[in-house]
């Protein structure tokens, strides 16, 4: 017994990494496939659930207006908060723009911020003179699917007043339509 033990070759402590390599290669290919260079991104949260649609048109870079159930953001910078009040008839919670934030249909703070963006974009396109960069008043709208149309209407009206007339509603691609 003792003799045999002495003759055994020293056990190599090296790890076999071939199987790990296989796994890594598969993960790498999958991640490369889902690698995205899209201009915009959606950060879903409890207050922002973007609706699913059968639309196929890819988004292009533009001013990004996000309307969640708790507030409004322009290019990820918060502009104002929204309030939740119980509905007079049904008692359900309804999201709306606070009365002191708006003049008629117009949301003052949002108007100021958007006008700033529009003027900056116009100035930029005038300086570069590039046709591609010409300011067309395009605006990307990411809205929560549960928001009532009254809020969307006020936001659209305000954007319209601030020279943004081409609305692009951001949706999640899904389904083959009806």
């Amino acid at each position: 017994m003792g003799k045999k033990k002495g003759r055994r070759p020293p056990v190599s402590g090296e790890l076999s990494i071939t199987s790990m390599m296989d796994m890594m290669t598969i993960i790498l290919v999958f991640l490369l496939k889902s690698y995205s260079t899209e201009d915009i991104s959606v950060k879903p949260s409890d207050d922002l659930e973007v609706p699913i649609s059968s639309a196929k048109k890819p988004p292009r870079l533009a001013v990004n207006l996000i309307v969640t159930r708790s507030g409004i953001l322009v290019d990820s910078v918060p502009v104002l908060g929204l309030e939740r009040v119980p509905d007079e008839e049904t008692g359900e919670e309804v999201v709306r723009v606070p009365d002191d934030e708006k003049k008629g249909q117009m949301i003052s703070k949002l108007y100021d911020r958007l006008l700033e963006k529009a003027e900056y974009a116009e100035e930029l396109s005038a300086k570069t003179g590039a046709e591609d960069g010409e300011f067309k008043g395009q605006i990307l709208l990411q809205c929560d699917r549960r928001l009532p149309f009254s809020v969307i209407r006020e936001v659209m009206y305000t954007a319209g007043q601030a020279k943004f007339g081409e609305f692009k509603f951001v949706v999640i691609q899904g389904g083959e339509g009806l």
Binding site: S34, S53, A55, P59, E166, F167, V171, I172
Partner: peptide
């Protein structure tokens, strides 16, 4: 990586 693909719907006032 982006696991959801986005699209837009055009609209005007």
């Amino acid at each position: 990586a982006q696991f959801i693909s986005l699209a837009v719907i055009d609209s005007t006032l």
